[in-house]
Design a protein around this nucleic acid. Structure first.
Lengths: 248, 248
DNA sequence: TAGGGGAGCTTGTACAAACAAGCCAGCACT
DNA sequence: AGTGCTGGCTTGTTTGTACAAGCTCCCCTA
């Protein structure tokens, strides 16, 4: 059972995406929406707050809310899992484990994952038949057995782990930058050495905040891009200085 | 005057950042917090919701809330404005206009900005004395006069426009990918041609949803990275397929 | 005609109350 | 020892009310 405010939000979102409320137009007031849906104003506020968080609608005190855009943010799962993202968008995709082995954790991994042994997995994933992503993942030791049981061409590791051992990836932190393709990456992706790659490093944790994996994903340039919407009120994406050695 | 829930959120955030609530520990319950601050439960919920949105705290129905991390997300202004971000983090920075001219809008610009003439500005920005960013911005025609009045070494265009003509950058949409440095970019940034660059294209609008600028910013690899936190509930960053020509 | 002052509207904040949904520890039972 | 269940605890949802803050537009005035 979805909650009332989620259903109202979905209905409004459909109206926006369907052109009932064009970009730049004003949304109905909270009172109007409350009357239309026979809901309390607070419930309508929750619904609209979702759309604001998605970047679909702009809001500020005193002024009517305005439709900002048509595109829709997708779910955590789609950002987290290549397979779920690709499937939700109707792409043909695949994946293949290139190598996999247990080894002691490096100091950095030990700090991030809180364990002494990791399972290192190297995967290549493809989109529409083209290899687009090299994924180097270190799984925390306590998950190694479950990961090793997965088939080498497992489409979605996220879903497989959830189904097999009930492991849920709940929170993630992502760092995004650009790097140059090394010889190995270049061969796996079928690009020239030195080509630009879009790198997404991420650490994922369970509901309890327990780290599960630390991954370094490198996308072939032009294959994938990240999109973020924000507003003056709040936004989640942050710029950070890299490890440039200044003054050197 | 900041609101009650924002002050409560700030206090809780300080406690988390100060180690009163270590990573992995449980936050006090809503009832406890409500009692401590003599506030209604709803107000406390608003405060905690802020921390959840920042990715600092994890939350799910039935279970106590858990502290997830120590780092804090910054504001829209810091993502949007290089100057505000750099200043807030204590970096020495600078900027210089390389070229600037009015010209007719390309079809793409016309569609995005909704105008027929744009002001094209090429800027280079530096961090700690090193050039790190090439910024190619197309300002909508109606802002051209105000932008042209700015000094060539204007530190923060955002702040200057706000101060001079009350123009507020309220909403943004950003696309992030990696590209290869062309000859021009390479010379401006002092890197070799073909080096990887982190590209952030963005469109910015006013409160009313009126487009102000369309910008293509290219960061030298290693100088800057983007960070995003998300949870299974909601997240704002989205992966998109680029313009890879499939099956070619 | 240009500008200032409100009036009314709209969103934001805060409180209170009740119930629903989900988690977890401890208990009883096998 | 392990398993299943239950009751209490905690967060999520919904409604209702009241007031504050900020925006818009109209009208009045200079």
């Amino acid at each position: 059972m979805v909650s009332r405010y989620e259903r109202i939000a979905a209905e409004l979102r459909d109206e926006i995406l369907g052109g009932v409320h064009p970009v730049g137009s004003q949304l109905p007031t909270e009172s109007e929406l409350a009357a239309r849906y026979s809901a309390a104003r607070g419930t309508v506020r929750q619904a609209v707050a979702l759309l604001v968080a998605e970047g679909l609608v702009g809001s500020r005190q005193g002024a009517r809310r305005i439709v900002l855009g048509h595109a829709r943010s997708q779910s955590f799962a789609e950002l987290h899992s290549f397979a779920q993202w690709a499937r939700a968008n109707g792409y043909r995709f695949g994946g293949q484990v290139i190598s996999q082995r247990r080894r002691p954790a490096t100091p950095a991994e030990s700090a991030r994952l809180g364990c002494e042994e990791v399972l290192e997995v190297l995967r290549v994933r493809s989109l529409e038949g083209e290899p687009v992503l090299v994924e180097r993942t270190a799984y925390a030791g306590w998950t190694a057995a479950a990961v090793e049981r997965l088939p080498a061409d497992c489409e979605s590791v996220t879903e497989a782990l959830r189904a097999s051992v009930g492991l849920v990836f709940a929170y993630g932190e992502h760092l995004i930058d650009a790097v140059s393709a090394g010889a190995h990456d270049a061969r796996l992706l079928g690009v020239r050495r030195g080509s630009p790659l879009l790198r997404q490093r991420r650490i994922t944790t369970t509901h309890e905040g327990r780290p599960v994996e630390w991954s370094d994903d490198r996308y072939r340039a032009g294959s994938v891009e990240f999109s973020v919407r924000n507003s003056i009120g709040a936004n989640p994406l942050v710029r950070q200085a890299g490890d440039l050695r200044f003054g050197g």
